[in-house]
Amino acid sequence: MSLALSKGVVKRRGKVILGPVDLALNAPDITIILGPNGAGKTTLLRVLHGVERLSSGALTLSKPDAQARQEQAYVFQSPIMLRRTVRANLAYPLELIGTAKPVIAQRVETWAERIGLADALDRHAPRLSGGEKQKLALARALIREPDVLFLDEPCANLDGRSTREIETLLKDAHLRGTQIIMTTHDLGQARRMASDVVFLLGGKVHERGAAGRFFVTPETPEAQAFLNGDIIE
């Protein structure tokens, strides 16, 4: 799917927190949105997903809105667990769209296997560890086999091992044709994952480019400083 934002602006209490942004994103990229705190990364991600309304400007999708929303998924920084079992959490997105029961059961098994929770299907999801929760949230997002997957700092609170597991799952999903758009603070993760980088600063797109070029020869001094680990405002 392709997503295009033109002159997108989000204001909160009269203050511009994003934009104006012109941005086109295309499959089959893994787009990483980088930038310092408060640059508007999460807001941009929510705008692209359609859960944050634009104050002005327009978001154009290559599919009809209703269908597009059905084929998108979103993973939050701190995973939201339904107060149900692991099994019920995985089944939930499929139940919403009326998938047949045997299909649900089979896909739940498959995904539980992939995230290493096959033995924990009947455990209460809110009682899982942080890493398990995030993997479950990711599996729950991928179980509908979405066209586009948004992730908001999915590994912010995880240890190295869980981070690596999540990254592997994401690469697998990407190989199966899911377009990935994610924010991260972790430059190492950005280097490992990205094919396309959007560098945000002060609510605007400061620099945009292919990952191979961006990480080697950034065009702006701010991007250079950011990559060097300097604090920028």
């Binding site: 929303r69 998924a73 939050f76 939201i80 339904l82 107060r83 149900r84």
Partner: peptide
């Protein structure tokens, strides 16, 4: 649950049923 249910594009009825059940 707000963000998750909005993101999953649930209908109002589905939201109410989910909240009542959970």
């Amino acid at each position: 649950y707000h963000d998750l249910l909005i993101s999953l594009n649930t209908t109002k009825r589905q939201r109410i049923m989910t909240l009542i059940w959970d």
